Each structure stands twice: as C-alpha cells, then as structure tokens.
Simulated assay, not measured.
Amino acid sequence: MQSRFFVIPVSLLIALVLQIMPLPIEADVYRPDWVLIVLAYWAMALPNRVNVGIAFITGLAMDILLGTALGIHSFALSVSVWVLVANYQRLRNYSVWQQAIVIGLLSALYHLLVFWLQHLLTDIYFLFDYLWPTFTSMLLWPWIFWLLRKSRRQFRVT
C-alpha cells in the first residue's frame, strides 16, 4: 500500500493551507499554529522521519506563503522541533493534556522567536496578541493528536 508514504506530506500540506486560509480579522488573532502542531505530532510519533530538516523545509514554504523574510519561520520551527525531538521519549509518556501544555510552551517559544527575528529586521513592537495562538494551539492539541494518531494507525505509517 503506497498511500502510507503520503500521509505525512499530505498532513503538512493541509496544515500549510490552514495556516494561510483567510479568516475574519477578529478571528485571525486566534489562529492556531497548525504547522507547528502537525510537525510536533509527527516529530513525537516518528522522530526518524520528521525532524529538524523537515521543519526547516516546511518553514521555508511557510515563509514563501506568508510573504515574510526568508528564514524567519524556518528558524523558529527548526528550534521548536529540535527542542521537541530532543525530549520526545519523555514527552510520549505524558498524558495528552500534559502534552498540550508542552505544545503551548513550544508555541510561545515559536512566536517569541518569530517576533524577535521580525523585530531585528523591522521595527515592530511586542503586543500580547502575538501569544493568543499559544492558547488556541493548546486547546486544539488533543483533537489534532487523536486525528493524526488515528490516520497513522489506519495507514500503518512507520
């Protein structure tokens, strides 16, 4: 069955589409970090297949899609996934709700890195609104975890 080789790329592609999908201005502030959540799941489930290199390439695609300076999201995603992959054996043993807290911390790290890099390149100032996606990502983690685990088991992705 060859479809199992496409589960990870398709899930990352769906996450990229969800990341750039237009939302009303009031809801856009709360947009979860779809790409980070999907990368985090695959990095914890299959760290030998989804690692810092995949995060860097996905970040480059995100930089191109969002129109930001090339490398901002690549660096932030790479650092976040590196922290996750370095501790994946410990994180696998946590409950889904404890993992949601870790995802929230990773999301905060990701957003602070993106802010810091954009602040170095442009002259933006920090607003608390930059951290709202941290909370929505934490709330979505159990459902995304369940959905991706079900698809991984259904297609026997190893």
Rank of each mutant, 00 (worst) to 15 (best):
V38K: 06
V50Y: 02
N51Y: 08
P9S: 06
S78E: 10
M62V: 11
V81R: 14
E26Y: 02
Q19P: 02
V79G: 07
P47H: 05
L16W: 08
Q89N: 15
V83M: 14
V85H: 14
I72R: 12
G59T: 02
N51D: 10
L18V: 06
R49F: 09
S80M: 01
N51Q: 05
L77N: 15
P24C: 02
I37P: 11
N51K: 06
V35W: 01
W34Q: 00
A76E: 05
W42I: 03
L66E: 10
A27T: 14
W82P: 01
A86T: 15
Q89A: 14
A15Y: 08
M44K: 08
L18I: 03
M21F: 08
L16G: 11
I72H: 12
W34S: 01
L65E: 01
L84C: 13
L12V: 09
W82K: 14
Q89W: 07
P32W: 02
I72D: 12
A61S: 11
W34A: 01
V35F: 04
R90Q: 12
V35D: 09
N48H: 14
A40C: 14
Y88I: 06
I72V: 11
V50I: 09
Y30M: 07
P32H: 00
A55G: 02
L12I: 09
W34C: 01
V83L: 15
H73D: 12
L23W: 06
V50M: 04
S80I: 13
V79D: 14
I37M: 15
A55H: 04
G71C: 05
L39I: 11
G71T: 01
T68S: 10
L46H: 06
T58Y: 04
V35R: 04
L60K: 07
P22S: 03
V29D: 10
A40S: 15
G67A: 00
V81N: 14
A27G: 03
D33V: 07
V10I: 12
A40Q: 13
L70T: 12
Q89P: 12
G71L: 00
I37V: 12
S78K: 09
S78F: 09
L84D: 11
D28W: 07
V29N: 10
N51G: 05
G59V: 02
A40R: 06
